[in-house]
Amino acid sequence: MYAVLFSGNAGEVEFAEVDLDGPGPGEVRVQIAATGVCHSDLHIIRNEWTLPVPMVLGHEGSGIVTELGAGVTELEVGDHVVLSWVAPCNECRYCKSGHIARCTVAMNLVAPGGVLYDGTSRLHRGGERIYHYQGVSSFAEEAIVPASGAIRVRKDAPLDVLCLVGCAIATGVGAVTNTAKVEKGATVAVIGCGGVGLSVVQGARMAGAERIVAIDVQPHKTELARTLGATEEIDASAGDPVAALRESLPDGADYVFDAIGKIATTEQAIAMLGMGGAAVVVGLPAAGAKASFEPLALAEADQRILGSNYGSVRPAIDFPALVDQYMNGELKIDELVSARRPLAEAGAALDELATGASLRTLLIPGRSQR
């Protein structure tokens, strides 16, 4: 069974039976253990990103390898894996230079998306093609993915919560460590304390930031941020968050992470910067959205605006390291899980996410209805 978006204008996913072909060369079949519900899925449902439908959504998954396609030697049946929506080709100039998240071949799976590397789909219903989402499509009981996008991790870690490593954790922590390279003693502000923003908070804590300001319109989220490493919090619903930040940090912040991706929050991030500061755009906006800033002020203050795609992740290196940090207690993941639901409740989980009340809901294939 799969959660399928049949129409880009319907705004809902349907729980349906879909046929799944076997893995082709360089691909593997994965039995999904859990998949997280992410705002990127909402962009598709809201028709803010143009992708082909019908499509099986989901890009934050974990599972067990059950079948190998021809030529796959780096994985074995029974391996526990976290799925990466950047499945690197390992041959383009970006892969060879270590900038895996920029892989030009992998980006063809993401936008315009809908197919695997050979240009075809493994999903169909009768004679109707069903498209893949970001080469993953984890709102499913099983998925066929490129082998380079299935990252082996240790088997003693709880496989369900590890799905969050595949997007929220890697994106947030990676934005701090890989993209911005936050140094010890820095001052950091994080706009938006959902799954990604809270991962940014943790990344800043692990990097040794001296002050970490958590900003959100939901007080319970900033309170949770405190437990994960934030040193102070700002209720963005109570007034101008830029003014509030300046009261706390008169010189502005060294790094401001926009973990929401709205025009207003990106512009706020730039306005919160101190001399030499960097605004890091982590949250993804609707296609075509444009923010504004004053270039002269940016240049005179020696500031930067950085885009962070997937936390500039190196999946084969970063995923196992993040799992190790979780297992040794340095990185908190369980705290980001707000609920567990059966796969059939994908639509309800997406509706809940849209309200801003939830963090990460895990969809568990085969979980009984409660």
Rank of each mutant, 00 (worst) to 15 (best):
V282Y: 07
Q325R: 08
G288Q: 04
K290H: 11
P285S: 13
S312M: 08
A287T: 01
L306T: 01
F293P: 02
L298K: 04
D324W: 05
L306H: 02
Q303R: 00
D302E: 15
P295G: 09
E300W: 11
V282T: 05
V281Y: 10
A299G: 08
S312Q: 04
L296I: 15
G311R: 03
Q303C: 00
S308Y: 01
P295Y: 10
V323E: 08
A286W: 08
L298H: 07
D302H: 03
Q303Y: 03
K290N: 14
D302N: 05
A287N: 04
E300S: 09
K290T: 15
G283Y: 10
I317R: 06
P295H: 11
F293A: 10
S292W: 12
V323M: 06
P295I: 11
A316C: 06
F319P: 02
E294R: 11
G283W: 09
S292E: 14
E294W: 11
Y326C: 01
A289H: 05
G288R: 02
L284A: 13
R304L: 15
I317V: 15
D302I: 01
V281E: 09
A301L: 00
V323R: 04
Q325C: 06
V281S: 04
P295E: 14
A287F: 06
P285T: 12
S308R: 01
G307R: 07
